[in-house]
């Protein structure tokens, strides 16, 4: 145990995800040794992110106004919505520069064991966006794990009867890997999702 302020800092850092007591102590002493200006910049950034950043009222992505920059961009297509679990997934897809439609952030995946059901996610908001008939396709880009797949299954069940095309991101072999190291589940999906390259 340390004196008041140091221990308070260690306790607060230790509450962050993935930061254990040892890491919290290391970060706290790094901050103690750092320049006052650097620490102030960090403190300002923390305060500013809480003061300025909110969730987009349309898609649920992080935003600095009522709508995020993707929803405000007039060059993007309103006909395709890509559904993701978290705002960080939007960043991952944006890095591909392949997708020019809009996003919808669910805020997680259906996980009954963790008591997360459909009503705990932004599913009603998604269905609301389909109501005007402008959206032609919904791409389900939830994580390729059990919870993400089950969420995609649930969403497809809701949306297909609405007459919209529902697609799922392909699963398969990672680029740069060796085929022999692929597990049978991934390889099976790669076979399932194979595409014709010539006839």
């Amino acid at each position: 145990m340390y004196e008041g302020a140091v221990q308070d800092l260690i306790d607060e850092l230790g509450r962050l995800p993935g930061v254990g007591p040892k890491s919290a102590q290391r970060i706290a002493f790094h901050l103690l040794a750092a320049d006052a200006a650097d620490v102030r910049r960090l403190a300002d950034a923390l305060l500013e992110v809480k003061a300025r950043v909110r969730f987009c009222e349309v898609c649920g992505n992080v935003a600095e106004s009522e709508r995020c920059r993707v929803c405000l961009d007039p060059r993007r297509s309103d006909e395709v919505i890509c559904v993701v679990e978290e705002p960080k997934d939007v960043v991952a897809i944006e890095r591909t520069r392949e997708f020019r439609g809009r996003y919808h952030v669910l805020g997680g995946a259906i996980n009954p064991i963790e008591n997360v059901g459909p009503d705990d996610l932004r599913i009603k908001e998604l269905l609301g966006r389909l109501a005007d008939g402008r959206v032609q396709e919904v791409i389900l880009a939830t994580d390729p794990n059990v919870e993400g797949e089950a969420t995609a299954t649930y969403l497809a069940r809701l949306m297909v009867p609405m007459g919209v095309t529902v697609s799922r991101l392909a699963s398969g072999l990672p680029v740069g890997g060796d085929l022999e190291y692929a597990d049978e589940v991934t390889l099976g999906r790669a076979f399932e999702g194979r595409r014709v390259v010539g006839r």
């Binding site: 259906i110 996980n111 009954p112 064991i113 059990v146 919870e147 797949e149 089950a150 299954t153 649930y154 069940r157 597990d183 049978e184 589940v185 099976g188």
Partner: peptide
């Protein structure tokens, strides 16, 4: 893998929600 049950279970929402309480 011995029993690859995850895929067929999560491909059907009814199976998924019935399987979760079992686990």
């Amino acid at each position: 893998t011995i029993g690859p049950y995850a895929r067929p279970i999560c491909d059907d929402y009814g199976l998924y929600t019935a399987g979760a309480p079992m686990l």
